[in-house]
């Protein structure tokens, strides 16, 4: 279990079918890996000085051998910013007389997700499907907005929805009530959708060509930012009851979005929410983000949101 966000492995259910996580890990061929070899890293120190050096170099390390790693453990950090954990044998970058060898890997930790996301993106492009990944905190109004969007687009554009929640089919059922197809992914303990879950969802859905696919991510302002699903755009939704400061408190999510919907603006007369300040904070982490003020209740901004979608669809079709 993650001590930070609570995400972890567990059962993932896609459209009600259980998929144990981790069961499908397949070894890949070594030659497929991209070994970057020696390369330079430029280090900029807090005092502003900077130097470059090759990646492989001896360091002075502070070690914490024989220490049990715990989340509460204070870490030791040297000037170059190295941290050591764990209870392994005495450390040597260059193995001495032992059989130990250094095996170069040089792979992004989320590289597998990024590869699957690219595959999803190609799959969508081949069919002219315009996919949006809606990210926000729980309760910002995603499903309500999707229902309204589907109703407004009815008869003009085919729309399908992938719903991500830890538990329940509630949101997929709300979407199906509009007549649009919806597949529910239950992530169990997982706090975000990943590209693999979404790719599997494609296989189970009969998605129309030249259609709109709306993916409602798990309500969470942290993890969904890091996982590309293969969408055309991430759309962040911030409802006015959440406070203006969220773009600065959870910057990765607002930086990853191309469009920000400032939602539930019908409630503004009842709140002290400062719209300009919220937008200013969002632009600080993402200077180019577009903003639309929306309310699924009053209908404000819905026409502008639909026009933004139709421009995206036209770009794809």
């Amino acid at each position: 279990m993650c001590t930070v966000c609570g995400c972890g492995s567990g059962e993932v259910k896609i459209g009600g079918a259980v998929r144990p996580r981790g069961a499908a890990r397949k070894p890949a061929a070594t030659r497929a890996w991209k070994a970057l070899g020696e390369h330079q890293h430029e280090h900029v120190h807090p005092d502003g000085t900077r130097h470059s050096h090759p990646h492989e170099h001896p360091h002075d390390h502070d070690h914490m051998h024989d220490a049990e790693p715990t989340a509460a453990m204070a870490h030791v950090e040297d000037g170059e910013g190295h941290l050591h954990f764990g209870a392994g044998p005495a450390h040597a970058h260059v193995p001495g007389l032992s059989q130990a060898q250094m095996v170069k890997i040089e792979r992004d930790i989320l590289g597998k997700n990024d590869l699957q996301a690219e595959a999803n993106r190609r799959w969508l492009a081949e069919r002219g499907i315009f996919a949006l990944n809606l990210v926000s905190s729980p309760g910002s109004g995603k499903t309500t907005l999707l229902v309204r969007t589907i109703n407004e687009l009815a008869g003009r554009v085919p729309v399908a929805v992938i719903e991500g929640d830890q538990q329940t089919e509630f949101d997929a059922e709300r979407i199906r009530a509009t007549g649009a197809p919806a597949l529910q992914i239950n992530t169990g303990k997982g706090c975000h959708l990943d590209a693999d879950m979404v790719g599997r969802a494609f296989e189970r859905m009969d998605l129309a060509e030249r259609s709109l696919l709306l993916i409602e991510n798990v309500g969470n302002l942290v993890c969904p930012a890091a996982f590309d699903l293969g969408e055309a755009h991430k759309v962040a939704i911030l409802s006015v009851t959440e406070g203006e400061d969220k773009p600065l408190k959870y910057p990765d999510l607002f930086a990853a979005a191309d469009l920000l919907l400032l939602n539930k603006v019908d409630l503004l007369p009842h709140l002290a929410f400062d719209v300009e300040r919220a937008i200013g904070y969002a632009r600080r982490v993402n200077p180019d983000v577009q903003v639309i003020r929306t309310s699924a209740v009053s209908g404000e901004g819905i026409a502008e949101w639909l026009a933004w979608i139709e421009r995206g669809l036209a770009g794809r079709a």
């Binding site: 790693p69 910013g81 190295h82 941290l83 050591h84 954990f85 764990g86 392994g88 044998p89």
Partner: peptide, 9 residues
């Protein structure tokens, strides 16, 4: 296994 984390500025 020992976990070494190199921070990059």
């Amino acid at each position: 296994a020992r976990i070494e984390i190199e921070r990059i500025a």
